Amino acid sequence: MSIQHFRVALIPFFAAFCLPVFAHPETLVKVKDAEDQLGARVGYIELDLNSGKILESFRPEERFPMMSTFKVLLCGAVLSRVDAGQEQLGRRIHYSQNDLVEYSPVTEKHLTDGMTVRELCSAAITMSDNTAANLLLTTIGGPKELTAFLHNMGDHVTRLDRWEPELNEAIPNDERDTTMPAAMATTLRKLLTGELLTLASRQQLIDWMEADKVAGPLLRSALPAGWFIADKSGAGERGSRGIIAALGPDGKPSRIVVIYTTGSQATMDERNRQIAEIGASLIKHW
């Protein structure tokens, strides 16, 4: 067993022997301040990774656009098919120029040779490549099948209805392509620590998230040296922004954090800054 596999296998073990965790309302004060600064709703939840206990939450059962955070769930569904012998990570998928959609920095470079399922998941999570996500959605049967996968996990809230990039439209009061912070946090925890996926697939999923290259201005910008984070960000229309993450000190994750916002007129930089400040408060009061 590799060191990384050992780390993920012992996530519940280490967490069980940690000192009790206590909620700190100071972080919620910052979440509410972010709402004021952005002029928009902000949803927040913080779960203990081992027990699933909610440590703090704000608007945990209000719907927010998922945006690209759905790509972690998508690759979880792909990995479940791999575990069941219905898919192979090494299978190569070929596609054409007509398949390319807006923001496809990886797939646009491989029109000639195609990409493997493993490479597509890596591109979808680490670079948020939209064509990679659409190609992977095709392998599982489309958005409705991802929703069905989530329902089978016990998540009857999260739903995907459309493809990239239309799913980022974020129309107010439109339930399409949305989740709730509580539902997303619980589902992410199941994917990373539950028995739904094999140990190898859980490790692969967290490795992809740990290698995320496009979430630097968010929670990662607030992390002290030595902290662990595996995350996936999302951005959408109407001032929408979000991030889902597993993080913790001492090089291992111990909490799940989900943050979503929508309806702001603020710039992307300002949305990023507010999420980073929430992260800084979380870490300060850990």
Rank of each mutant, 00 (worst) to 15 (best):
V78S: 12
V106S: 01
V214G: 06
N272G: 03
M209R: 04
S104D: 15
D250L: 05
G194N: 11
T131M: 13
T138Y: 01
A185G: 03
V82P: 03
R271V: 03
D129H: 15
A132Y: 15
E175N: 02
Q88R: 11
A266D: 15
S104E: 05
S80P: 07
D207H: 06
E61Q: 09
A185E: 07
A182P: 10
P65T: 03
S221W: 06
G76C: 12
G251I: 05
L38S: 06
K190N: 15
K71Y: 05
V117F: 13
G239E: 07
E102V: 05
T69R: 05
M184A: 09
F58M: 11
A148R: 13
D212V: 08
N173P: 07
E108A: 06
E102S: 12
S68T: 01
I243L: 12
A34W: 04
A280H: 02
V82K: 05
A77P: 10
L191P: 07
A211I: 05
E102L: 04
E46Q: 09
G90E: 13
T147L: 11
T267Q: 12
F149H: 13
G154H: 03
E166P: 03
R159I: 00
I275A: 09
E175S: 02
S51T: 06
E195A: 05
A200H: 07
R241S: 07
E210R: 13
P217E: 10
K284R: 07
G239V: 08
E175P: 01
G39T: 14
T69M: 11
P181K: 12
E166M: 02
D212T: 10
T178Y: 10
G76K: 10
T138W: 10
V257R: 02
G85L: 01
L218R: 04
G52C: 02
L188R: 05
A123I: 00
K71V: 08
K252V: 01
T126M: 00
P253R: 09
N152H: 13
L136N: 13
L191H: 03
G142T: 01
A276I: 07
Q97Y: 06
S104T: 02
P65C: 09
S254F: 02
P217G: 10
F228I: 05
G242V: 04
R255H: 03
T131A: 13
R220T: 09
P217I: 10
A148Q: 04
T131R: 14
G242M: 05
L197A: 11
D207R: 04
Y103V: 00
E102R: 07
D48I: 00
T27V: 07
E35W: 04
E166G: 07
D161S: 02
D33N: 01
L55G: 04
P181A: 12
M268V: 14
L247A: 03
I45M: 08
R273Q: 13
S240G: 06
Q265F: 10
E237V: 11
V157G: 14
N50L: 08
